[in-house]
Design a protein around this nucleic acid. Structure first.
Lengths: 196, 196
DNA sequence: TCTACTTCTTGCCAAATGGCAAGTGTATTG
DNA sequence: CAATACACTTGCCATTTGGCAAGAAGTAGA
């Protein structure tokens, strides 16, 4: 009966093998559709939803002191999407999360998520794993930002995450890489010249 | 009888008000002393200890592709010190953690920490809070790295964390800020000229 | 105390990146 | 279909930062 939530069940299957527990987990998720350009979360609001993205593409961004957008993350299908600080600390979000393509996924509230964390140990292990992996990849990105040139960072992102380049305009990718869109354009020109 | 562990009890008191639970928590921590320049964790090893630093000063660093050290974090008294990824995922550490001054603190093993997480819900809330706050501050740092000049980042760090400048040599601070020690030296010269 | 090492600074020049504005091409939409 | 917005590129020049090497000053050891 809960089989429309096959995606949710599949997402947790490796960490929570017991079907009965998967049932309980799946019951607490609700379908969510987001139109292209619409927001899952807006800066200043308190995040209420933890989203598992089944299809589509999203980005998180915030505004710098000059008011320019800085893209801080991209999310593809299969990934959990939420603002860690706002969702877990109930503080106003410092960033917004927006659909770059029509999105569908499954959301759970903070209270429901916490109930599951308390009642299903395996589930909270999965939750911790998600946090820890996000932390680790952010650290890698910081390391790369410090030690590599923009050209190298661009090449690495293109290689490791080509989907981003199919879904996001270059200006978003540029600010994600920590450079301006002009510089990214020049980097692309230089690389294409090298390949001749 | 457990009163030498006053620091541990105090650390968790706000999140775990019940004295009996504090007793159980404190029982699982063991004292640890680290000489200046010695390591709590070395790159390649799997982190076994979660440390609460009672006194002293530490830094985390890793090696870039050229083999140069990049300082990724500083830790003062009162802070938890551990490599999130290695400790929670049992993977080889990508960074080392070293004492920049004689350190004393309290450590707990992964298994003991997990036992406490499972048996004391308030304790695991504290644990999650530590993770989430670390995540949030790393994000802020990334944002700053993207949008601010090195000079601004230096000024902000000096203002928000002056202890670092008392404890760490400038070359560590420079790589933490994402610049070379020469550039940091020039930035300091320019700032001191402005103040004349 | 003498020596060696580390820390910090500085000069010189090169490389990387930004700021601004213009130009081209492509979607979008009324 | 016209009008408008958006995405991307490029030229020109300024600013920021790096690389390298040398030197001054302080520190730690033998």
């Amino acid at each position: 009966m809960e089989n429309e939530k096959a995606f949710v069940r599949h997402f947790f299957q490796a960490g929570v093998p017991q079907p009965e527990k998967l049932d309980i987990i799946a019951q607490h998720f609700h379908e969510k559709l987001i139109d292209k350009h619409d927001h899952l979360l807006s800066e200043g609001k308190i995040s209420q939803e933890y989203l598992l993205l089944e299809s589509g593409f999203m980005r998180a961004y915030s505004l710098d002191t000059e008011g320019d957008e800085v893209t801080t993350a991209f999310y593809g299908a299969g990934q959990p999407v939420f603002d860690v600080a706002s969702f877990f600390m109930h503080t106003p979000a410092k960033e917004s999360i927006q659909a770059l393509a029509p999105c569908s996924g499954w959301v759970i509230s903070f209270d429901d998520l916490n109930k599951l964390f308390h009642s299903i140990p395996e589930f909270r292990e999965v939750g911790r794993g998600i946090l820890v992996k996000g932390y680790a990849s952010l650290k890698l990105r910081m390391q790369s930002m410090i030690t590599e040139t923009a050209e190298t960072r661009y090449a690495m992102l293109l290689h490791s995450n080509p989907e981003i380049f199919r879904q996001a305009p270059l200006k978003h990718i540029a600010s994600y890489l920590g450079i301006t869109d002009s510089s990214l354009s020049r980097i692309r020109r230089d690389i294409s010249r090298q390949h001749k």
